[in-house]
Design a binder for these strands. Structure first.
Lengths: 193, 193
DNA sequence: CAGCCCATGTAACGAGTTACATGATTAA
DNA sequence: TTAATCATGTAACTCGTTACATGGGCTG
């Protein structure tokens, strides 16, 4: 039971359908939790039967109807209990780092190519985060916004996400450069001390 | 099938038992992959039946016997194939960020307490990484080491891990401070514009 | 002598992933 | 007319987690 709290936390921000949530998970919740759409659909059903969220049907004429959900008081209480129990340490799964770990024993070219590709992707993601942050704080500068009465949870987690991507970008870039340089050096035949 | 490559990459570094691997996963592989001991024991059996690693029994008199494993050529080939296929984007799961996301709707005290606790834990982890890095590079300074002929994969992933923990520490600390300040401000009754 | 470290394993359960299915509207 | 977006669901399967079991040696 772990995804449920991420879904509840995301739904605090507004009334969303499974489909909408899936997109929100993709671009902002993924900073702290990963889930594919199927997980959301089934988790939403479960949360509704348990009374932690309540859904209502929205009839649409130009596109399929949808069911949107809001967090109930029971849902907020559940989040309160969740925050009161010690958080397990976070986990990371990153195949690209697995490859770098093994890079001394396999051909480096494929690894370098992937590092460079991911560097581009992370640059794009940083842009997105910048945009989200500007949007969330509106007219205020960051300091003023963080001292305002407005909700700041989503802003704070987005700050963490941006920083993570910035560090990814930096590491992808410098690691690719280094591996390239070494590939060049060994190709030229020189093995230093 | 994802854990297998992390196990193979970790085993490139030496000959280890399941028990030893579990500890290695805890303190360094966790930078890019998470696994509990049970997963390792069963994954090791599977990898051995598939011929990607080969194990041998070590008889010990002062403590239980153990089975240690090394990566076979087939295992290295498997890693080579792995590195040649596009890596899926990494995933993160961090309950503490879920709590911060929800912090506007629940009482902040528990969240602040956890942030401060985790800040301490990440400081300790940074120390560990520093130590590992010094150990890996031996007498050389970082630049010289990274240009040497020595294996650098483990060093590079450790660099990423250290940076991640540094950023965690920074974010835990500043977020806790901010939430504390806001708690104080609202307790004193003042809600700014 | 209590509790931790070493060392591995089975079994049950819970969570996550993938495939498949449906079907309307809209943009290229 | 091909593809993408919207919108949700069932079912099969793989993976991850927890509980339980065993047992000797070492440390305080």
């Amino acid at each position: 039971m772990a995804l449920r709290h991420a879904v509840l936390a995301a739904l605090l921000d507004g009334e969303y359908s499974g489909y909408q949530l899936a997109k929100i998970f993709d671009l902002s919740v993924s900073n702290f939790w990963h889930a594919v759409p199927q997980q959301l659909y089934s988790e939403l059903s479960r949360l509704e039967t348990e009374g932690l969220i309540s859904g209502r049907q929205i009839i649409q004429h130009d596109r399929p109807n949808k069911r949107v959900y809001t967090v109930t008081q029971a849902g907020v209480d559940e989040l309160e209990r969740f925050a009161a129990t010690p958080a397990k340490p976070g986990i990371i799964r990153e195949n690209l780092l697995v490859m770098v770990q093994a890079v001394d024993h396999i051909s480096a070219d494929a690894v370098i190519a992937q590092l460079e590709e991911r560097a581009l992707a992370s640059a794009a993601k940083i842009e997105l985060f910048e945009h989200t942050l500007r949007h969330l704080r509106g007219d205020l500068d960051e300091e003023a916004f963080l001292q305002s009465a407005a909700p700041i949870g989503p802003y704070l987690t987005c700050l963490r996400g941006r920083r993570f991507e910035q560090e990814n970008h930096e590491w992808f870039t410098s690691t690719a450069r280094l591996l390239r340089a070494r590939a060049g050096a060994t190709a030229e035949g020189g093995e230093p001390a």
